[in-house]
Design a protein around this nucleic acid. Structure first.
Lengths: 145, 145
DNA sequence: CGGGATCCTTAAGGATACTG
DNA sequence: CAGTATCCTTAAGGATCCCG
């Protein structure tokens, strides 16, 4: 993962709908994990690269996902493989040939995030305006930065 | 979000639908920002606390969001305020009285993430199974840690 | 070629002390 | 009470080397 630090586990938000409220808090934890995972710098990029190109070899993937180091590529792919988002296939030849592809689950996750994407697209301008307004207010205000 | 580090900006994934493809990559960057933000350890928790309790004072919010330090509370709230997700209200009295509430935008964001939540809920078991299988395979495999 | 092991830098985030 | 400023710890992630 990439984004921030996770030092402690921390309590998870409870689900919103009544039906979910009955279920384990494990789901909440899982959601947080998933979100955290997707929020790292690379998972989304890799997901997208695989969506666009189908089955891709390790090094090729490294070229597709522009700034990534091989360490993070390996690490993120392992993570995704572990969660069942990608399928790793080793061809026992020399030199080694390993390729990766999204699983159904992986594609599903991509689709699930489309909602957030849509929301962001729709409210894009609002957020930019809010930021501009915030900046302006900050400059006006005394005793700050 | 609580998750990892963001060192460089990094190129953003392109949108999926054709209509979006025409628009600025700024939207992609914004989406990534939003996701990254929501994935930190606190934004979601604060969002949820405010959803449940409406208008809440700073210290009360600190109690609601269990493990948070006042530094991160301030910082995350500022962030959210900047993005237009929360409204900060200062009552000029002594001792100071400041309270926070979600904006329409903030509530909308919460709703947008419901899709991911639903997905996670639905595929919860699959992921757990994938992880278990992965662990098992790892133990079986030679030459690994 | 794929990727594990190691070292190193950097910054996220907690703790604490101070202020209006 | 609601912050701000500072210090310190920890770990995320890049770079590099090495191996099958």
């Amino acid at each position: 993962m990439a984004a921030k630090r996770k030092t402690k586990p921390a309590r998870m938000p409870r689900p919103k709908s009544p039906s979910q409220a009955e279920l384990d808090p494990k789901i909440g934890a899982l959601v947080q994990q998933i979100i955290a995972r997707v929020a790292d710098r690379w998972t989304m990029l890799i997901l997208e690269a695989l969506e666009e190109h189908g089955t891709v070899r390790f090094k090729e993937l490294g070229r597709l996902v522009v700034g990534i180091s091989q360490k993070m590529l390996t690490q993120t792919l392992r993570q995704m493989e572990c969660d069942g988002l990608v399928k790793r296939t080793v061809h026992p030849v020399i030199p080694p040939h390993v390729d990766y592809a999204l699983t159904k689950l992986g594609r599903g996750l991509g689709e699930a995030f489309c909602g957030v994407w849509k929301w962001a697209e729709k409210h894009y301008a609002e957020i930019e305006r809010a930021r501009a307004a915030f900046e302006l207010a900050r400059k006006r205000a005394p005793g700050n930065g």
